[in-house]
Design a binder for these strands. Structure first.
Lengths: 110, 110
DNA sequence: TGATAATATGTCAATAATGACATATTAGAC
DNA sequence: GTCTAATATGTCATTATTGACATATTATCA
């Protein structure tokens, strides 16, 4: 139990022993990775819908073709920032980006 | 007009001259900044709703209180990655994060 | 077949983001 | 007022991300 939560609850008269809350909290890293994969796939889709090559998009962003390829491939060394920049530069709306964030990635099972 | 688009359109029989498309494309950087501010504010809200101090959250994330403060303050040197990690660690759902992304920030006018 | 365009993969020097720390400021209880 | 917890601000060495480049792979067309 965290300091502040304990403090507040105790002040409110609660007896706070051990607790199993925050159960839903696991897997921050995994969610982040999944988000990046999802956004990468969405980037490819958006780019193709707008008939841009990776090189086209790269120039728009002031980046390079190889980096765009890595974004779309879900390369671990690509930041969310870069993905969002890419999506915006490719013509995706803020709403589309948000929507993609919640859309679970289509697993490419072996 | 980009290479690929031109190629496709020409193949389809279009005469592609100059064009003023992609008008909506401006301001990638501004949108990104706005997103970060919005997520920062959402982070504070979420953290408080879960009765966590900045220190609590920092420990959860393996970060430090000062960095959490910077996240919430919209410090320019904070990545989207870190903000999303923070939000997840604070207990926000993926859906909540996406929702916040589209929610225009409440301007704190002087 | 060869030629061309698009994409993928690996590397690396330059840059940006990070956690940690010190310290300042603020807010609330007493 | 003091004391204490929480938050804010500035700095810095370490780490992560970046664009650029070379090169490989994969189409597609003639």
């Amino acid at each position: 139990m965290e300091q502040s939560k304990r403090r507040r609850l105790e002040k409110a008269g609660w007896r706070v022993g051990s607790s199993a809350d925050f159960l839903e909290l696991s897997g921050v890293e995994e969610v982040l990775v999944d988000m990046k994969l999802t956004l990468g796939m969405r980037l490819r889709k958006t780019r193709e819908q707008h008939n841009l090559t990776q090189n086209d998009l790269a120039k728009r962003m002031g980046s390079s073709q190889s980096r765009v390829a890595k974004m779309e491939a879900g390369d671990p060394g690509v930041s969310l920032d870069l993905l969002v920049q890419g999506l915006l530069a490719a013509g995706a709306t803020r709403r589309e980006i948000a929507s993609a964030l919640t859309t679970r990635k289509k697993a490419a099972s072996a």
